[in-house]
Design a protein around this nucleic acid. Sequence first.
DNA 1: ACCTCGTGGTTCAAATTCGAACAAGATAGA
DNA 2: TCTATCTTGTTCGAATTTGAACCACGAGGT
Lengths: 152, 152
Amino acid sequence: MTEPRWLDADEMAAWNAFVEAGNLVNRRVEQQLREQAGLSHPQYEILVRLSAAPEGEVRMSELAQLVVTSKSGLTYQVTQLEKAGLVGRRTCETDDRGVIARLTEAGRRKLEETAPGHVELVREHLIDVLDRDQLRALTDALGVVSRKLRGS
Amino acid sequence: MTEPRWLDADEMAAWNAFVEAGNLVNRRVEQQLREQAGLSHPQYEILVRLSAAPEGEVRMSELAQLVVTSKSGLTYQVTQLEKAGLVGRRTCETDDRGVIARLTEAGRRKLEETAPGHVELVREHLIDVLDRDQLRALTDALGVVSRKLRGS
DNA sequence: ACCTCGTGGTTCAAATTCGAACAAGATAGA
DNA sequence: TCTATCTTGTTCGAATTTGAACCACGAGGT
């Protein structure tokens, strides 16, 4: 095993900042959604993705990619949302294996009443603490990271 | 309820990038540590923080802050690490309530043999895909976010 | 000394996560 | 057509996470 290229101070700082900020923000968001709407962050994400799709419908496999979770994880969360009446399931006409998740009217209302508080929090902790340039730099950098990971 | 300030396209992109990159990287790191060392990311983080501290000792409450987890979560993970012989517990002399986690020799060895692969992955997916300026911008921006969240 | 309040850590139940195993359906080539 | 191979989504068990409840202890005032 050859000696690895260790991280220098700047690189270490970058990694730490990434992990720390991610954890802190996630915790905060999770907590806020939970107490304000009784939703987990993944659940909220699912509602958002569905609402953005035509007919409010997205196929399970695609949805799993969008919210970055495992297949079984998505199955679980969609089941929860279904019990709550916020999402429905139907089978795909062209592919009998396929299952399509669909946002219900109640789901859309739930999202509408939850979004303001959520956006407020995102603003307070991420958007409004950065200026335009910082925001762009952040988006660009993280975009590179994501694309790299998506393609492998 | 007053109408919230919604996110414009750039702001939305920033938030999406943040969440997506965080999820993707986390999943990847988790998977890598699990199969290469049988450790979860939080567990690895604990070992890192301990190894960086004088005597390899950190108090539980402080450790929870460092790795950004709940008290109970930390208790659980330290217990796991203790079972594996990588970490020890002792009570604080000056405060009978306090518990101090301590990195064992086996723990230090485990960290030494796990770190190279981990660093390699961090490099591949975060560090090496960005140039110096991007890395600095990322660190600065996320630093602002973390500081803001730490102080509230 | 005593009492009150805050802190530190653990325990507990409930919810969530993941991967592996599975069943059922699509797909492509001989 | 037959068959071998992917894909899809669910199920299952094991591991993990969280907040609330709890107990023990320190700190400050009376």
